[in-house]
Design a protein around this nucleic acid. Structure first.
Length: 411
RNA sequence: GGUGGGGUACCAGAGCGGUCAAAUGGAGCAGACUGUAAAUCUGCCGGCUUAUGCCUACGAAGGUUCGAAUCCUUCCCCCACCA
């Protein structure tokens, strides 16, 4: 195995990284691997607590990719067992426990999503249930004996919760230990994670030593803030751009970030580096709108291939600038005679139709939306809650700016 | 084990016998505006074939009362301090 020089590797690794703990150890490991031809084992875990990976995860997945390109072994750990506990990081309360079925369902697509960035041929995908599930109580006793409650409480999520009198379940103490055990099993040389993972990654260093291994190097990446501009990007805040989101979704969500976030996103999510990045950041200061549209297109290109960004940009203009009906409107077939639509004289209740087609969550919601002038039929704004619609042929219903359904009547 | 404090809508959190489908903030949806699904302002924000009506909802089940989120009983759950 031939690796780039140690200093080249260090440059690539450091680019965008927030912290490397400890940096000298990484240099030593790289030197040794260059000498022996033995690639480093670089791991990162992802808990399938939700169905999607998002561009916040991509920040470190890209870094995994960089390791891979330099010839190291990347292990993508699907935390299907740790997900059953839920990472307490940043949590002010116990996570709802997921069932094994829910986790398995989420895990199914993780690998596929990660491969939008990683090279499938050079990635080892491991599920941590493989080694965590078979553990016996004796094994767990050994593991838990390696760490103290006082050290656990150093962690500020726990410290704060304890101080505020909010519950901390004992299983939550197990989480960092299980993650650490992953590192032991994999004999990890390097573990990647977001900066909020620092505690967990550091615990692994201690635990590896207790199990007679050389401790891993922790490589912490900055956290990307979500589209709300306030919280870190997270599935639970619903402020994320999913790797598997449709192009128009990715584009629109990116457009919705506050201007103040542009520099952060350009740095962490655009895939740009060096001079290009500097130029883009400068552009964001002078022409934020332009810069945001470029960023959005770039994000879409990254996950849907070159050209997809331009198409999404065009669709965005059509929808929001020109207020036209988008190309791909889902069609719903309804019967003009359906009693749920209150048919009379060849017409149906528009409110009921909205509820029926899913544009409104209930008849009451539909009535309110109609009263507020939120609804258009074939581009014409519809009146109040009593509006009716001729039940023939087709009509395009629109609620708000971006919810469309084409209705086709039969019978 | 003891003592004290709690459990309210998607979240946080007020209410403590009627005027409570429940203040307020956040989230969400919509309208206006615009450079955007930004910001700002405004409205809405349980359901029901639309009704000064009914149903569901203030941890659960019973009870008191003309009337209960509010009072009582039992149960379940959470927190703090002490042990």
């Amino acid at each position: 195995m031939h690796f780039p020089s140690v200093s080249e590797q260090m440059d690539a690794i450091c680019q965008g990284a927030l912290e490397i703990v400890p940096e000298e150890a990484l240099v030593r490991k790289l030197e040794r691997s260059a000498l022996t031809g033995q690639p480093l084992v670089v791991k990162q875990g992802f808990d399938p607590t939700r169905a999607d990976l998002h561009i916040g995860h991509a920040v470190s997945i890209r870094k995994l990719r960089a390791f891979q390109e330099m010839g190291h072994d990347v292990v993508f750990v699907v935390g299907d067992y740790t997900a059953l506990i839920g990472d307490p990081t940043g949590r002010s309360e116990l996570r709802p426990r997921l069932t094994e079925e829910e986790v398995a369902e989420n895990a199914r697509t993780y690998q596929e999503q990660a491969f939008r960035i990683l090279d499938p041929a050079r990635t080892r995908v491991e599920h941590n249930s493989t080694w965590l599930r078979p553990l016996q109580l004796a094994d767990i006793l050994k593991l838990t004996a390696q760490y103290t409650v006082a050290r656990m409480l150093e962690r500020d999520d726990f410290a704060r919760r304890y101080q505020d009198g909010r519950p901390i379940s004992v299983v939550e103490f197990l989480y960092p230990l299980m993650q650490a055990y992953d590192s032991v099993v994999l004999k990890a040389d390097v573990e990647l994670g977001g900066s909020d993972q620092k505690f967990n990654l550091l615990v692994a260093r201690d635990i590896q030593e207790r199990y007679g291994q050389e401790p891993q190097v922790c490589l912490l990446m900055p956290l990307l803030r979500g589209t709300d501009g306030a919280h870190k990007m997270s599935k639970s805040y619903d402020n994320y751009v999913g790797l598997a989101d449709a192009p128009d979704q990715q584009y629109g969500k990116t457009m919705s970030i506050p201007d103040a976030l542009l520099e952060e996103w350009l740095t962490l999510a655009s895939g740009l580096g060096g001079a290009e990045l500097a130029a883009a950041v400068e552009g964001a200061r002078t022409e934020p709108y332009r810069a945001k549209r470029d960023l959005a297109a770039r994000v879409v290109d990254t996950y849907h291939g070159a050209g997809a960004g331009a198409a999404a940009s065009e669709a965005f203009d059509r929808l929001f600038k020109r207020r036209e009906i988008p190309a791909d409107v889902p069609t719903v077939q309804v019967s003009a005679q359906d009693p749920a639509l209150a048919p009379a004289d060849g017409t149906v209740s528009l409110a009921r139709l909205l509820a029926r087609t899913g544009l409104a969550s209930s008849n009451g919601d539909a009535a309110r939306q109609l009263d507020q002038g939120a609804v258009s039929v074939d581009g014409e704004r519809a009146g109040g809650r009593d509006a009716r619609l001729a039940a023939t042929g087709e009509a395009v219903l629109q609620k708000g700016k971006r919810h469309f359904v084409r209705v086709r009547f039969d019978g």
